[in-house]
Design a binder for these strands. Sequence first.
DNA 1: GTTCTAGAAC
DNA 2: GTTCTAGAAC
Length: 700
Amino acid sequence: MEMDIDGACKPKDEEEKEKGKPILAILVGAPGSGKSTFCENVMRASSRPWVRVCQDTINNGKSGTKPQCLKSAAASLKEGKSVFIDRCNLDKEQRVDFVNLGGPEVEVHAVVLDLPAKLSISRIVKRTGHEGNLQGGKAAAVVNRMLQNKELPKLSEGFSRITFCRNETDVDAAVKTYTAVSPLDTLPHGCFGQKDPNAKTQLGIMRFLKRPHETNTRDSVPSQLTEEKGPCGKTQETVSSSSGMATQKIKVHEDMAPGSISQDESDIPTLAFPSISTADFQFDLEKASDVIVGKVEEFMDKLGNARLVLVDLTERSKILSLVRAKAAEKKIDSKRFFTFIGDICQLYTKGGLCCNVIANAANWRLKPGGGGVNAAIFNAGGPALEAATKEQARSLLPGNALVVRLPSTSPLYSKEGVTHVIHVLGPNMNPRRPNCLDNDYVKGCKVLEDAYSSLFKGFLSIANTQVKVPRSSGSILSGPSKLEDEISGTKTKTWALCLQALYNIAMQPEKHNKQVLEASDDVVVLNDIYPKAKQHLLVLARIKGLDTLADARKEHLPLLMTMHEVGLRWVDKFVGEDASLVFRLGYHSVPSMRQLHLHVISQDFDSKHLKHKKHWNSFTTAFFRDSVDVMEEINNQGKATIQDEKRLMSMELRCHRCRSAHPNIPRLKSHISSCQAPFPADLQKKGRLVPEQTNSGCDP
DNA sequence: GTTCTAGAAC
DNA sequence: GTTCTAGAAC
């Protein structure tokens, strides 16, 4: 019997339901981003019945509460109307209750108005009589603050479609799209429009921790405004300089338990896998889908909270619809097993889906190339994946899987947060490929089952070790064995936490009282825990999204100046205590820890922690960018020059004063302990050395 | 960022 | 044999 597979497996009534579903469109954007205008423009011309639920007006024209919005939205949806949720919805927590209004009968969309902050602010400042009463200079500070804490929506929150608008053109396009959806239409699912290109560079690291400082943003913006007690006189200027946060009081909510890391989605072990053998190996889709669903069902009760996700590139994928239908038939928990359309190599960055493990439909030689998923994954994983694979095995038999731990140097790890790749080899039904089973589906299905078994077992072995909570401190006298650590997999996490350390301190200095020497709204000062000189401080920027020097732009200039001033103040203090000290203030071109930090370091380099070439070169070559130069460059060119790390780190060891070369670190250290030569001329310019050196040797 | 360690350099 | 470094692991 010949039948269209798609049609055969999809219950007819389900298809009909998909048409004419009301849309719940949750707008996401700061005040002034144009949410209300967006709704009005769509509603003006749309043939769909739209209702706009606006928190600013829901209370008889005055601002209301979130529950009021929820109630109103639910009522309209029930009547079959489509709804715009017109409130900021800038973080997941704010959105979740609205997303939950969705269901099989309602499509939940997000429309993100992620326009330049300047634009939002300038609109608000000009605005009079806006419903939300968020006007004038104070608004700038609030918007600035809100945008710092924003959290872009992801499909995994429960949206079927997300539209990102980064500029007016995007907004116009989105208005058109939504205006054009007739009552019987649906819009394609997935993410549309570009995400913020500056969003984040260290996703792999960030995923280990939910942002620790999550201000429980109040629903109504005006009430927040009235709470602002900062000096208002200054905020007028902040519109252009964006240093509005200078006047913000950082509030920390007491109800956040210390160190509480809420279980967000990134903590759930997730395996994303392609359909094995059905592409190039030409395995029958109907049979393959039976095997997949059967094996998933078998492993379901072993999964715990872990998730399995079948991924395919295209929306038209037959294997996905087959599997979806069969999984639904078997009532498999759709929270722990679902299908996903997207590139398996970019699930996080493009699709917002956090997967710590991905499976590769490998070839028997475990070699890159060949096209399809295998080529894509090896390509995305880079040489690090190839090397790590090679180390484990040179070949793979059909029905087997190989777990490969990704080195942190792999882009898949750093960008996508993937910690492991599991190579799987399935049965081959393609006569033009090796080991063809020649249509023997009895054997074929057995091999395919084995393949998924090996894959899921491999995943469980990783998932089970990663979920474990780090041991409680001081529980075992003998201390943890290396083996124990390796098994529990906590080290990876610890390591990720180390990279985060500065960020955490910058966000919550009050939780790190022991280390923090000084904290203001703008900066936190602390001693470097591994000082490379007699005095070695770090001045941290307390702003989100400013991870490294490369992120610094003109709008950060006031902050950089503050950091410099704070650093100078500490130098004064130190020089007062020991007049022999001379300091440099500067940034590493490529820092190893997240969160922009200014080094304030005395030039004696007298420290037991200075051990390696890298230590030395990171403070004495062009890799160290003097703060004064950085500020000048950002002012003139809009950003700082980043020096080539590799070249500078491998430079020969030279004395920072007389420039003499030395064969190794011990000899160098012995030399610098006594070298009294004057500093090189270029260092004596522009205030790079503090206090400034006088050639004559007599201070004014 | 540090620690560990194999093997190069001495 | 000892010192030192580079690279991997954490």
